[in-house]
Design a protein around this nucleic acid. Sequence first.
DNA 1: CCCCCCAGTGTAATCGATTCCACTTTGTTC
DNA 2: GAACAAAGTGGAATCGATTACACTGGGGGG
Lengths: 337, 337
Amino acid sequence: MSKPATIRDVAAAAGISIAVVSRVLNDGSGPVAPATRQRVMKAIEELSYRPRTAARELKSGPTTTLGLLLADVTNPFFARLADSIVREARSRGVHVILMTTQEDARLEEDALDTLAARRVGGVIATPTSTNAESWLRLIDLGTNIVFVDRYVEGVSRADLVSIDNDRSAREATEHLLDLGHTRIGFISGPLSTTTGRARTEGHLATLAERGVATDPQLLRNIPFRGDQGADATGSLLNLPTPPTAIIVANTAQVAASVRRIRQSSVRVPEDLSLIVFDDNPWTELFTPSLTIMRQPTTLMAAHSVDLALQRIGDDSERRTIVIEAEFVVRSSTRTAG
Amino acid sequence: MSKPATIRDVAAAAGISIAVVSRVLNDGSGPVAPATRQRVMKAIEELSYRPRTAARELKSGPTTTLGLLLADVTNPFFARLADSIVREARSRGVHVILMTTQEDARLEEDALDTLAARRVGGVIATPTSTNAESWLRLIDLGTNIVFVDRYVEGVSRADLVSIDNDRSAREATEHLLDLGHTRIGFISGPLSTTTGRARTEGHLATLAERGVATDPQLLRNIPFRGDQGADATGSLLNLPTPPTAIIVANTAQVAASVRRIRQSSVRVPEDLSLIVFDDNPWTELFTPSLTIMRQPTTLMAAHSVDLALQRIGDDSERRTIVIEAEFVVRSSTRTAG
DNA sequence: CCCCCCAGTGTAATCGATTCCACTTTGTTC
DNA sequence: GAACAAAGTGGAATCGATTACACTGGGGGG
């Protein structure tokens, strides 16, 4: 009800100056007599005083807050990433401001503005836009950026944590080739995103190396948001010569794709082998349990936070941390019939 | 690289005083000559100046930031809630700081402290602790609280947005009774949480009203986090006289429960009817597609943000908004026997 | 022709912390 | 016993914005 106490109120209550109170607050910033410290602590307790972050940040820029800019928390991959990052950050005494872009470049720009105004210590982001300019502006302000999963070309002086998208696409493709499949449907993200492009290239390169003909009809690069996963899958199944296997390398579209397959008369894995890029409990619950490519989110989170906090004050070039994706073979893939 | 521009730099560049620059920044706070405004805008652009939030908040308390304190973003229900709330808040020009408690009372206390230090305008939360004190302290500081889904008893002067837990449990129970089931397993949250208690009571009351004997063995109140969902489900299935139907009213434990059922030899819905409290795409993908109780997250989000922002400056008693849950009958429930 | 009002601008106080520096009071060391 | 170091404390500047208030000119009403 009454106005919150300030440092001056505490000082008055303890019969001491505000400088000393501040020293008690920031332990180690100067000497304080034990008796005085006691009195100050008591006053703080009684007034239930909490130093105001806004005032603190005004003096010394905040190393204490990280911005987390995700495309979409609804996507379980990002949700787990968010969870891990928040936990990881807290264990280091750092707070996280979460913002989402909904895969919309304008909203992203908005969010970056906010983060810039807040002068956060660092930003961990899965970028949406291809527009390097807004990122560079933020970097110029002294913010350090860590891209996770995807990145923006042209923005050096930003770190990167990612799985090896190229390699994971290769691995999935090789698995199917080994099983004798040659007509493989491949659903991935837009070629404008780094993940979409790298995975598609890895897939195509593997086919080429194995001397398997590539059919452009089998390739689907679709957006992360929206419902095109169902359509893309449906059109693959309805091809004159349909694929005998499908890789869904667009994490956000896995559910829509699987739903579409389930509604069709196609049986998995008898008629169709299926690999999805997703790390989600339900892939195991599905009938048949799905073969997946898993991205180790906890590890990615730890590295991201590390980089975001380390780089402060540093000015070196981009550092890239590549994390192995884990390929889990379950029951949705089998020898081509 | 160079230090970010301040309002003084802008004023100097435009050949004007800082007061006028501030007026340009906060449109409507005072008269500015059109020509002057132009020059100021130009200077802002050239210096890529962004007013610093910390400084702004120091003067006038921030109506512009909301705290969101969730138990667990990994839980899809909370993830969708977070997504909707962030979106909803942004459309009102408000930012959201997300923090998670991992269902841990100490972490929650921590988070509340941070939020208090930040003097956020409001907090939307799914409380974990039963400890009213920390909440009351935050309220005393002038923060207004909106509880979602669960609430803490003894904290009036905080709003509440929730589905009718009692009623939804009744509805699910009645559906099964109508199908002829009389031995119904009921898995819910801890009785220390309001949702766990209300759902359990609703379930028991319905049984009583219909004259069905209640067997304590069929009741399982388990934590939200952790793995007890599997054990609870397993022990229900292994009872001497196992239930012919199960309601999983603990959203966080749905996946674990379903996995356990799937690993057993029990067939759904032939041997066991199943209702889960969850609103998640995969419940439709599961074989058989699951009958669910859905909580309309978008609506809950809209109301929460509304309340959080409205109450500012208001001092009335708690307002409660109850939202209808949506019961979706699919293929996992059928006539008993 | 005088006065009042208002558009347009500037000065300075203010928000709540941190921190540099100066000052006093002890205790230590030749 | 003089000199000096270190502990403990306080005064005041500072961070970057907002805003109350004072000031100046010029136009319009009386």
